[in-house]
């Protein structure tokens, strides 16, 4: 049963990647692009977890944890830049 479900899940997550990427390219505003980047990293975590289950390896978990932390810091830094960059210039 898992063998049929995992390819479907791969497909769905890949579609999620494409949709987020489309929003990243399309914009139209800076917050939209940051939101798209944010979604992309969460999708990456989903993909890594799936890969871990598929290959039966717990190694991917460390990568997922690191991406979660770095992604959050990146989103916060970009938002702070938007909130403050405009005030200074």
């Amino acid at each position: 049963m898992l063998d049929t479900v995992i390819p479907i899940a791969y497909g769905l997550v890949t579609l999620a990647f494409l949709l987020s990427f489309w929003r990243l390219v399309r914009g139209p505003d800076a917050p939209d692009r940051i939101l798209a980047l944010d979604t992309l990293y969460v999708n990456t975590i989903a993909f890594l977890v799936l890969l871990g289950i598929h290959l039966g390896s717990a190694l991917y978990f460390e990568a997922a944890l690191l991406i979660a932390m770095m992604g959050f810091v990146g989103t916060v830094a970009l938002c702070k830049y938007l909130l403050r960059g405009d005030l200074i210039e």
Partner: peptide, 26 residues
């Protein structure tokens, strides 16, 4: 149980991104 969880997870991930692409304002 595992299959259901994986399927639900993938579906929700997909729907979240669908919302990101489909809705009309930020």
């Amino acid at each position: 149980l595992l299959s259901l969880l994986i399927l639900a997870g993938a579906l929700f991930t997909f729907v979240g991104s669908l919302g990101l692409a489909r809705l009309r304002d930020f």
